[in-house]
Design a protein around this nucleic acid. Structure first.
Lengths: 175, 175
DNA sequence: CACAGTTAGTTGATTTTGCACCCACTTTTG
DNA sequence: CAAAAGTGGGTGCAAAATCAACTAACTGTG
């Protein structure tokens, strides 16, 4: 459901192949969603089925044909409807917090190990997001679309930063 | 997979029925996980199948029999193994950020509406978490188990607070 | 007294997701 | 020159998750 909307959103920016969509999920929007490529191709087929997108086969000289997917008017409507329908709630699912919640089953030093390793991973992700932000032309952020896109990355950065602070606090006060 | 571990974790705290597990998912650990009750009962059956839990039917006078699930030694091992195996990565999936990312399809005032409504929802969740924290005996947090459980709630509070700040910033600077 | 809510659990159908694998060709790199 | 990585598109299968209903008794409230 969400995946279908996100794909429509991306197709709204420009017509794309499933392959290119996968690249976007892995790079430009990896800070708020990820998707298996099998899932992308299947959802794409569904969208075409429902008339929310059309395919145009573009032959290439050296590479396989591009199955370029274009959003239709109906597709644009579905997307706008999703956005107008108010904010969706975010599922609040974090398996790592589950590990922390039950971490008392471990020895104190193993708990510390868990937290320290998580700290490293979080720092790594944060650094990735920060370098992604460097690649954004801040002058372009005057335009609303770019501003909103940059904003979601900013949110991800704040979330990771907050988690880092929290990890430090937990490591400091852990009894 | 994660659900099975979380259920083992809860059964580790005390033997429980599927019904009681559902209540925990809805109240005490709702800040980092939720689960459909059908899924809980099915996972419970799997755990018994694999020998990670056992059932004891406890008859009651006025209410239906309790199918009390107890964790076994094998179950405890699986749980500890999950915790020792290092931190799991958190999937980073937020459909609302998807809405923001593509919100430029809407008029400026509709974008604001989206953000304001989200602000309200976030505030509501934050207030819920804050009142949950009030219910926690802070003297008990000297014990490691209580400390870690309280810490996960603290993390959820920080995350929601960070999001509130972000929403305010976006609303202020939205072009 | 009717109605809503609580306790406890179950079933079926459907969707979503993840994992592994496959094709065929091209370009880059050690 | 061989191996790896990139381009582009799939299939099959199983596990996980969600939705919706259904059973069946009891308790509290207006």
């Amino acid at each position: 459901m969400v995946l279908a909307r996100l794909i429509l959103g991306l197709l709204c920016l420009s017509p794309m192949t499933g392959y290119e969509l996968k690249k976007h999920f892995d790079s430009s929007i990896n800070h708020f969603w990820n998707a298996d490529k099998a899932q992308i191709y299947r959802t794409l087929a569904q969208l075409v089925d429902k008339g929310y997108a059309t395919v145009r086969t573009v032959p290439q000289s050296n590479y396989p044909d591009r199955q370029e997917h274009h959003i239709t008017e109906a597709g644009r409507e579905v997307l706008t409807l999703w956005l107008s329908d108010g904010p969706v709630e975010s599922p609040e699912r974090d398996p790592f917090m589950g590990q922390v919640f039950f971490a008392a089953e471990l020895e104190r030093e193993d708990i510390e190990k868990l937290l320290v390793k998580r700290r490293e991973a979080t720092q790594f992700i944060l650094d990735d997001y920060l370098s992604q932000r460097e690649g954004i032309d801040m002058r372009a952020a005057a335009d609303r679309r770019s501003f909103l896109m940059a904003a979601t990355l900013d949110n991800a950065i704040r979330q990771q930063a907050a988690q880092l602070e929290w990890l430090d606090a937990v490591l400091e006060y852990l009894p």
